[in-house]
Amino acid sequence: MDKNINIKVKIWRQRSPKEKGFFETYNLENISQGSSFLEMLDILNEKLINEGKEPVVFDHDCREGICGMCSLYINGHPHGPDEDVTTCQLHMRKFHDGETITVEPWRSAGFPVIRDLMVNRSAFDEIMQAGGYVSVNTGGVPDANSTPIAKDKAEMAMDAAACIGCGACVATCKNGSAMLFVSAKVSQLALLPQGRIEAARRAKAMVAKMDELGFGNCTNTGACEQECPKSISITNIARLNREFLSAKFKD
C-alpha cells in the first residue's frame, strides 16, 4: 500500500555553467508514495517559492516517458533505481521513509550544466543534423507490403527507433561515450530500404560529429544498455561498428 513518507533530497545547485555547483539538502514531509518523482520536485519547488527561495531548475515535458526531456541522476542511476522507465515515470514508492535521495545532473563533458539539474543536450541535435535523416521526401504512407521488409529487420529497426535521445547512455558511461545513441539512430535507418542507401555516409558523418563534440571512446562495458529507459540493445553498437568499418575500408 502507498503511504506518505518523509524524505530528504540532496540536490545539486549551480547558478550558471561557469559557476561552481554545490549540494543543498531539503526536507520534505508527507510525500505520497503514489506521486511521481517529478511531482515530488514540483512540491519542493512550490515550497521553495512560498519561502521566497529560488526553485530548482530541471528538464521535463511530456511526463509520459516519450519525449526524452527529463533526465536526473538519482542515487547513482540515470532515471533512478527503477528499470526501463524515465524519471517522469519513476514513482516515490521506490523510496522509503527517512531516505536521503541524491539528485545530480547528467555529468559529462558533452553535456555541460546550464543551471541546477538542467544540462545542454544540443550535442545530440548536432549529431542528428550530421546525418540522422533520409535526404529525399519518401512521400506518404505506402501501401502495406509494397516494399517487402523482413519481420526481424522491421522489429530491430523499431526497437532502435524507440530511442528518445534522453542521454542516459552518455550519463552512465564511464567513458562519456554517445555510441548507444548514435548506433540506435544509425540502425533504425540502416535496417530499412529507405535508409539503407545513405547508410555508409550517415555512419561516417555521425561518428565524425560525435568524436568532434568530445564524447568518449566506447569500451563495451554495457552500462548504457542496462540503464537505458527504452532498453536499446548494444547489438546496435556492433552494427554501427560494422557499418562504419566497412564504409571506411571501401573508401
Binding site: S108, K174, A223
Partner: peptide, 25 residues
C-alpha cells in the same frame, strides 16, 4: 581521452548497474 569526456565534475553517488562486469570497467 575517456576521462576527459567524462567531465571534470564526478558523480557523488554512482552505482555499477546490474549486468555490467567489474572487469569491463
Amino acid at each position: 581521452q575517456n576521462r576527459k569526456a567524462r567531465g571534470s565534475n564526478r558523480y557523488t553517488v554512482s552505482a555499477r548497474p546490474k549486468g555490467v562486469s567489474w572487469a569491463s570497467q
